[in-house]
Write a protein that binds this DNA or RNA. Sequence first.
DNA 1: ATTGATATTGATAATCATTATCATTTCTGG
DNA 2: CCAGAAATGATAATGATTATCAATATCAAT
Lengths: 121, 121
Amino acid sequence: MSKSLPAVITTLERAGGFASAQEVFQLMRKQGKSTGLATVYRALQKAVSENTVDVLRKDDGEALYRLCATGHHHHLVCTSCGKTVEVEGSAVEKWANTVAKNNGFKKVSHVVELFGLCQKC
Amino acid sequence: MSKSLPAVITTLERAGGFASAQEVFQLMRKQGKSTGLATVYRALQKAVSENTVDVLRKDDGEALYRLCATGHHHHLVCTSCGKTVEVEGSAVEKWANTVAKNNGFKKVSHVVELFGLCQKC
DNA sequence: ATTGATATTGATAATCATTATCATTTCTGG
DNA sequence: CCAGAAATGATAATGATTATCAATATCAAT
């Protein structure tokens, strides 16, 4: 499950490092790369699980994938212009794990997103 | 577009103030309230636009709605049975504000939800 | 009360991203 | 080579959300 991954990642780079699965698929098609939609999804999921790609959701629920340099982090998104800042959150990580343990939960994941208005807006 | 809104909000309250549109719909049905799925969606959207309800997304992209009037707290939700625990998060609050300030953001809000498997599941 | 204009509802169909299937192709080691 | 495993990709299935639209409720003004 890995021959396609590099091509997908490369395409994601060319797209500005930020695109939906569908967009990546379309792009690869236009560039002549024969590929299947399912393969694109598989590659992106793999990349996400390896923390080389980051996923977040548009308002309508569509997933957007983005290359991310460093491990796990969260986002600070401008609700007006969409500008996004990557934010480190090890403090939140610890907090989440503690809370989970205190309540007997396992396999915890968390969703942490910050919204606000950036300087320009 | 408002006769159904109260009923929807009430149901959302009964659900612990935290549920998906589909769940709200099912609940209303079980309680004998005749209603349509589309109406539930419309009511929830209205509520969101009026800031009486808050929306966030599960990992699979499904939208979860939650009352945002009742104090501010977070949730630890079992992804299997749906059991929900309310969690205090002043630590996260502080963190969010600090991060926002450091990046020049104002009017910050945040979405923090924890998911995992509870003891039974 | 009765009309007529307007807004709301809700069943149903349409949309669209994401997943599952599965036959086919491509790799791999022996 | 060759079998077996892994990867691919076309296609179908899933499931949440949205659009459609006829039927119904609301309400102001006569």
